[in-house]
């Protein structure tokens, strides 16, 4: 069982979370072309090793998090809030 250290709640079982997806996508603006959106939505790297991914603490604080996880070992290197302002708050409170 993966254990995720939520910056708000502490370390919890992954069953409290829902997997989101690739956390490195730069979503195009809403009026961007179909091509740009296609690349953002459908094209993914199949990373072996650490990747940044979003997880939602859906059965917890409901915050969306960026988790740096190894796809090979499930080792988690870092967990941060998605929202940059909240990232700053968490950093400052460390």
């Amino acid at each position: 069982m993966i254990r995720i250290n939520c910056p708000y709640c502490g370390e919890r079982d992954h069953s409290e979370f829902s997997y989101g997806g690739d956390a490195t996508i730069n979503y195009p603006s809403l009026d961007a072309s179909e091509k740009e959106w296609t690349e953002a939505i459908f094209f993914r790297k199949n990373i072996k090793g650490f990747q940044f991914e979003t997880w939602h603490h859906s059965n917890g604080c409901r915050m969306w998090l960026v988790v740096e996880r190894s796809t090979v070992t499930h080792e988690i290197k870092s967990v941060k809030p998605c929202h940059p302002d909240l990232q700053k708050v968490v950093e400052n409170n460390k």
Binding site: S18, T54, H56, M63, W64, P81, C82
Partner: peptide
């Protein structure tokens, strides 16, 4: 539940 998570994702991750 899905819509709620979706709105939260948009606000926390995309349209910050």
């Amino acid at each position: 539940a899905k819509v709620m998570s979706w709105l939260e994702e948009l606000l926390q991750n995309r349209w910050t």
